Computed example of a mutant assay.
Amino acid sequence: MIARLAQPKLRKLLQQFPAVALLGPRQVGKTTLAHSLADELGQQALYLDLELPSDRAKLTDAELYLSQHAERLVILDEIHRLPGIFETLRSLIDQRRRKGKRNCHFLLLGSASIDLLQQSAETLAGRIAYEELTPFSVSEVAEAGIGSADQLWVRGGFPDSFLAANDQDSFTWRSAFIQTYLERDVPALGPRIPAETLRRYWQMLAHNQGQMLNAAQIASGLGVSGHTVARYLDIMVDLLLVRRLQPWATNAKKRLVRTPKVYVRDTGLLHALLGIRDQEELLGHPVVGASWEGMLIENILHTLPATARPTFYRTSVGAEIDLVIEFSAKERWAIEVKRSLGNPAPSKGFYIGCEDIRATRQIVLYPGEERFRLDSTTEVMSLPWLLREIGT
């Protein structure tokens, strides 16, 4: 098993909260991670897969069954299959709290869905914490010593895709994953949307990777209303398949862009949606720059502390910063992504933007391995260097 960055975070949350929800897209490795934790605990853990009728049957009288395993960590996989269980969990947690027992009892696994998050947050308020498991990151792949950053970029980070025997097998897996998600998994989580309509919408987002959302254009292409386009985006964001990066919006003196930028979060899925099978095809495709930018941004956001606020900055006259990270009111990093080894210098608009937001650090990310100063205010470094900076 490849060590996941979420694992130590998950252990810590399990010590602090009586219930923890591990969320992430299908096939991202949630069950594998849960089994790893269960193996560490041995007989102190109980795993139930709620997609199995036999395991769901055990919870016909959930209060009675779970009370019999009060001293164990109960792992409930595919929790969306039994959403009504949250009230029972609240009752059991409160009973044990009254007895002075505060150790964690429930680990809930599921693909994020609006109804699931809302119901769990309302019913288990103050009793539950959330942790997201993403596809493999650059740091996880490097630590495991398998593959390369380029392989991760092309294939994406879903384990079965990244670890496939070759690029063709990886592409085949991702294509099947997309089809299954649209036809089975999305309807199972609640939304009733024709699979072909949602596929076309997802492909439109892929063609516009890293660009500001043009809802009117997409609505026209799909033959639906702007409201429907917004609802589709909410669904894709909620399922952790699409990233909606909000614009910086605190400088009232500038004419700032107010529309979010949108990224397909996993570059492997992005490339499958666009029919890109390998790195050669990717390097010749117009999406190459936006794809690389999206991969770097996802890796950065996955590493940020929960209190950091990521945005992008753009004005109507062209000042632009790819990523702004506000760690506090006094610490603000401006990050420009350049896929060029020979000339990583940012545009004039980047420097203007840095002045506008009063950036405390100015960083250019590039695909090289060296780290150097471009000028008195701007550093050039690779993604691993930046991730180490964030982690210290």
Rank of each mutant, 00 (worst) to 15 (best):
M295T: 04
Y263I: 07
N299I: 03
T259F: 07
E281T: 09
V257T: 00
Q279E: 12
L296C: 14
G284S: 09
L274I: 03
A319G: 07
T267M: 01
V317R: 15
L301I: 10
M295S: 10
Y263D: 11
G318Q: 02
H271D: 02
S316F: 14
L304F: 15
I300V: 12
R244I: 12
R244V: 07
A319P: 13
Y263H: 03
G284T: 06
Y263L: 03
A249H: 15
A319L: 09
V264P: 09
L270F: 01
P260Q: 02
G275C: 01
P286D: 07
A319N: 05
T315E: 10
L304V: 10
Q246M: 15
H285I: 05
I297Q: 01
L283R: 09
V288K: 10
L296W: 15
R258P: 13
V262D: 06
L245E: 02
V288I: 14
P310S: 11
A249L: 13
H271E: 00
L245T: 04
E280S: 13
G275Y: 01
I276F: 04
W292P: 14
Y263M: 08
Q246R: 15
G268I: 02
V257N: 01
K254S: 13
T267E: 00
L273T: 01
I276H: 02
L270A: 00
L301R: 11
V264L: 08
E293Y: 08
V288Q: 13
F312C: 03
A306G: 13
H302D: 15
K254E: 06
A252T: 12
R314K: 08
P247C: 14
T315V: 07
A308Y: 10
L304D: 06
A249P: 14
Y313L: 09
L282Y: 00
R314A: 08
H285D: 09
I276A: 00
G284M: 12
A252C: 11
L283M: 09
E280P: 14
Q246S: 14
T303R: 15
L273W: 06
R255F: 02
Q279C: 07
L274V: 03
F312M: 05
F312S: 05
P260D: 01
H271A: 00
G294R: 03
L245M: 06
L282W: 00
W292G: 07
G268D: 06
R277S: 00
E298W: 00
S291G: 05
T303P: 06
V317L: 15
A272V: 09
R244M: 09
E280Y: 10
T250S: 15
R314I: 09
R244T: 08
A252G: 10
P247A: 04
S291I: 05
T267F: 00
T311M: 14
R309T: 10
T307L: 14
T250V: 13
V288D: 11
K261M: 02
T259D: 13
G268F: 00
L283N: 11
V317F: 15
K254M: 07
P286C: 03
L283C: 08
R277L: 01
A306R: 01
I300P: 05
F312W: 07
R309V: 12
V288S: 13
I300R: 05
S291W: 07
N251D: 11
M295K: 05
G289A: 13
